[in-house]
Design a protein around this nucleic acid. Structure first.
Length: 232
DNA sequence: GCGACAG
DNA sequence: ATCTTGTCGC
């Protein structure tokens, strides 16, 4: 889908897509999704997945897995061009979409406000949140070392996201709005997704699932977790 | 010009 | 991202 794009063209598309961003409060959240990609080094095969959990209970309800071929290389600032096409393919396998999706990467905390979470959100018209494991853009002001401490990440005086400490004395994660949500709400939602790990549950779970998919332990398709038998 | 640089 | 064992710290 983006394999033939040159960097200048990718740049232009990001700027065009950024004009479609809508950062407004999201009404209700009953389900939350986690999206991620896995691949073997040097391979063009991407193993994509999306998991859906109930919110705020965070109980896994279902997940979808699918592969996609792409040769677009990883380039800081252009992650969406490598991952979004694969995610769009898995997205199509989901019958009932989650209210919001958390992606492994940034949203508007990006030089052109078009990180992978915003990119995916705008193309699907879905609410998304970006949660990266390291800084890409903005002033990296670190929060206090205690769990749930957060520090604004700004660029030219504008708050684009937050560095959030999800565990005491651990590296923070970087949260930003992707699409159809506000930065403040994105932070609040991610805080509610913290279990006993540094990475929020939606993203942590799909990362494991997508890895099992890549290593052959799971197969492509839409799967429903613990589907209780209905007797009548 | 130099260094940084999500996954 | 992926390849990998032990190991330092809370």
């Amino acid at each position: 889908m983006y394999d033939h794009f040159t960097l200048p063209e990718a740049d232009a598309l990001q700027i065009a897509l950024s004009r479609k961003l809508i950062l407004q409060p999201l009404k209700r959240i009953n389900t939350i999704g986690g999206a991620d990609i896995s691949f073997n080094k040097g391979s063009s095969t991407m193993y994509a997945g999306i998991v859906i959990l109930s919110f705020p209970e965070l109980i896994v309800q279902s997940y979808a897995l699918e592969t996609y071929e792409t040769t677009f290389p990883y380039q800081p600032g252009y992650l969406g061009f490598k991952e979004v096409p694969a995610l769009l393919k898995v997205w199509d396998l989901i019958p009932v979409k989650p209210d919001v999706v958390v992606l492994d990467g940034n949203g508007i905390l990006h030089p052109r406000r078009m990180g992978v979470a915003s990119h995916f959100g705008v193309l699907t018209n879905q609410a998304t949140i970006g949660c990266a494991k390291s800084i890409l853009y903005g002033d990296n002001h670190l929060p206090e070392k205690s769990k749930f401490s957060a520090a604004e990440i700004k660029s030219h005086g504008e708050t684009l996201g937050y560095a959030l400490r999800t565990k005491d004395n651990n590296k923070p994660v970087y949260v930003s709005a992707g699409h159809l949500i506000t930065t403040e709400q994105a932070l609040a939602v991610i805080k509610k997704c913290i279990g006993n790990y540094r990475i929020p549950e939606p993203t942590r779970l799909i990362h494991d699932l997508v890895n099992d998919f890549r290593t052959g332990k799971l197969k492509a398709g839409f799967h429903i977790k613990d589907q209780p038998l209905t007797l009548f």
